[in-house]
Structure formats: C-alpha cells, structure tokens
Amino acid sequence: MTAIPGTCREVRLKVRPDGLPSVGNFDIVSVPLPIPVDGEVLVRNRYFLVSASLRMMISEGAEDVDGVPFRALREGETLAGEALGEIVSAPAGSGFSPGELILHFRGWREYATVPIAQCRPVEPGLPDPVGYLGHGWTAYAALTRGVQIRPDDTVFVSSAAGAIGSMAGQIARLLGAGRVIGSTSSKEKAARLVSELGYEAAVFRGATPIVEQLAEVAPQGIDVVIDNVGGEQLQSAVANARVGARVVILGALSGQLATHGSGRTAPVELDSIQLLRKKITLRGYSADDDPHMHAEWINRFAEWLRAGSIRFPHEIIVGLECAPQALERVIKGEYFGTVVVKS
C-alpha cells in the first residue's frame, strides 16, 4: 500500500442538472483525508462504477422515493456509487484487516470512511478485481430466480450492450436458451453483440421501428424478456411475445435517460388485451432481493471465465478527474459494457 496522504479528491454535485447531466454539473474538490469514527473502516478506493442510474439521484426535482435504493443528492454533496476498495485501517474485532478488498457504495472519491455493516467482503475467485463491479450477478439472478430459462426459449435483452445486458445475453445462452436477441443504440454495437457476445441477432434504434425489427429476427415470437429500458422497447417486446411469455423488468433507461424530468419515472403504454390474450407475466425484479446469489454468481463466473465461455466487456477510465466526462458519455451511450473509473 502507498503512503497515506493528508488530502484526497472527490467528485461533488455543483449544480443539479435540468435534464441530462454534463461535465459542468460537477466539481473535483480536494478535502482532508476522512477520519473513521467508531464502527467504520478507512478505505482507499481502487475502482468505482459509473452508471446512468446516477441521473436519478442528481437531477433537478429528484427526491427520495420508496423503492429507490439511493437517496437524492443535493448540491455540494459528494456523488455515491458502488466501489471496490482496499482497507487502509479497521478497528480491532471488525473482521477486516488492512489490505483486504471490499465492495461498498461510497465511490466517486479516492478515500472513504465506510460503516462496517456496509462493507461486503470480496469472494475469492475472479482473476481481475474489476470483475467484482460488473453487473453479471444482476443478470444471473434475474435469469435464475426472476425467471427460469427453458431449452427452446427465445430471449430478448434490451440495452444489450450495457452493463447488465452485455452479460445477460451470454448468461442466458449458457443456461440453455434456444436463441438470444438484443437491442442497442447503434448498428456498430449491434454487430459487436453478434460477433463478440454470441447474440444470434440484434436490433438497434434509428433504423426501422423496433417492433418491426423484432418481428423480422424473431418470427416465432419471444418467450423471455429481460428489460432494462421500458418505453418503445418494452412495448415492442410485448407485441412480439409468444403465449406464456415472461417479462422481467430490471431497469427503466427510457426514463433515466429522458431529456427532461428527474429520471425517476418511465411511463409506458401496454396493450392489456395482449397481456391477457397471450397470458404474459410481468415481474419487477432486483438482485438485492436475493443477496446470497452474489457468491453463487462469482463461483459460476469464475468457472465460465476459466472455460473461456464468457466475456466481461468493460471500459476502464483512468483518473478520478475523468469521471464526470465518463458519466456524460455513459448517458450518451458511447461505451460498450461496464464502465469503471480507476481512482
């Protein structure tokens, strides 16, 4: 471990954005090194996750909402998000020791004090520590607990080039799905989904309507929908669903990335006649409902990595000072897979 500095940097919300955030909404500030109180550990953050869902926490009009796990942030407050950190100091009897890696939710800063109860030890097994920040476990939990995959299933994953979707398609295939189809924001990303991640086909925004593209690539219909978007894409999936289709809703990027509003609502109009006639089930799901799944996922992930049967698409942005621009680019859909900052 390197010498402990007297000061460190963090990213703060300068001005709440009215619409989508940009670099000008944030400040990089230098602060005294935080001092842990009783029941806390001091952590040097090595990596932290950059997620479009942060928009819900920082936008003009954002407020705390039941069911949203992260509180709204006020101007002048430090941003927050999942991080992988190395313990610098820990109280006796805490169960933690210096040098140990943990997961916690005080990212967007170089050093953090974290309550012991909010520290999650890193299960051994992955060759690259960045993999612990991936959203594969969300996809894995959804595909094993939120829905059961059957051998002849055609699975549709929306936002298939995102942090969750880039893993979900691969996992569905490994769990035995018959066909896996994804959606994304560009023709280039659609090609990568097929050539790199094993998707049989991919549709993309900006071409013909999504509903027509899905009808072409899934003429027999869709059995399972892993929805990260909502809006037009959820509508299109329901329109192309087979009888008995199962829809698992993991996110609502159509609302989070809307150009106006706080990002905390995502209206969608669905035809209830289709839901009734096709006997479609819709379920909102969070991997946090099954926290024990994380250890199971790490074991499976490590096994699949050793076998060369899965990839972990990700981008590493070096330097905390680059984090605001990384967030802006994530929201614009310029990356492929998970995005982390090495602080």
Results as ranks from 00 to 15, higher is better:
residue 2 T to R: 13
residue 6 G to N: 15
residue 15 V to W: 12
residue 17 P to L: 06
residue 19 G to R: 05
residue 20 L to Y: 07
residue 21 P to M: 09
residue 24 G to M: 01
residue 26 F to D: 14
residue 27 D to G: 14
residue 32 P to D: 15
residue 36 P to T: 04
residue 39 G to R: 00
residue 41 V to D: 02
residue 43 V to T: 07
residue 45 N to E: 07
residue 54 L to S: 08
residue 61 G to R: 03
residue 62 A to M: 08
residue 62 A to G: 13
residue 65 V to A: 07
residue 66 D to G: 08
residue 66 D to P: 10
residue 70 F to K: 08
residue 74 R to C: 13
residue 77 E to D: 14
residue 78 T to M: 04
residue 79 L to A: 04
residue 85 G to W: 04
residue 95 G to I: 02
residue 96 F to V: 00
residue 96 F to Q: 01
residue 101 L to Q: 10
residue 105 F to R: 13
residue 107 G to K: 12
residue 107 G to H: 09
residue 109 R to F: 07
residue 112 A to V: 03
residue 115 P to F: 07
residue 117 A to F: 09
residue 121 P to I: 04
residue 123 E to T: 14
residue 133 L to Y: 09
residue 134 G to P: 00
residue 138 T to H: 08
residue 147 V to L: 07
residue 151 P to T: 04
residue 151 P to L: 00
residue 152 D to Q: 13
residue 156 F to V: 12
residue 161 A to T: 06
residue 167 M to I: 02
residue 170 Q to C: 01
residue 172 A to M: 09
residue 175 L to W: 02
residue 175 L to Y: 08
residue 178 G to T: 00
residue 178 G to S: 13
residue 191 A to E: 15
residue 194 V to E: 11
residue 196 E to Y: 00
residue 197 L to N: 06
residue 199 Y to W: 04
residue 202 A to E: 06
residue 204 F to K: 02
residue 208 T to P: 03
residue 210 I to C: 04
residue 214 L to D: 13
residue 214 L to G: 11
residue 225 V to G: 06
residue 230 G to E: 06
residue 232 E to K: 08
residue 233 Q to N: 11
residue 239 A to Y: 10
residue 245 A to K: 05
residue 251 G to L: 07
residue 252 A to Y: 14
residue 254 S to H: 13
residue 261 G to P: 07
residue 263 G to P: 05
residue 267 P to Q: 07
residue 269 E to K: 14
residue 269 E to M: 13
residue 276 L to H: 15
residue 278 K to C: 14
residue 279 K to R: 15
residue 280 I to M: 07
residue 283 R to W: 02
residue 289 D to K: 12
residue 294 H to Y: 15
residue 294 H to F: 15
residue 294 H to I: 13
residue 310 I to R: 07
residue 314 H to I: 00
residue 326 A to D: 01
residue 327 L to D: 06
residue 329 R to I: 06
residue 329 R to N: 14
residue 336 F to G: 01
residue 341 V to T: 06
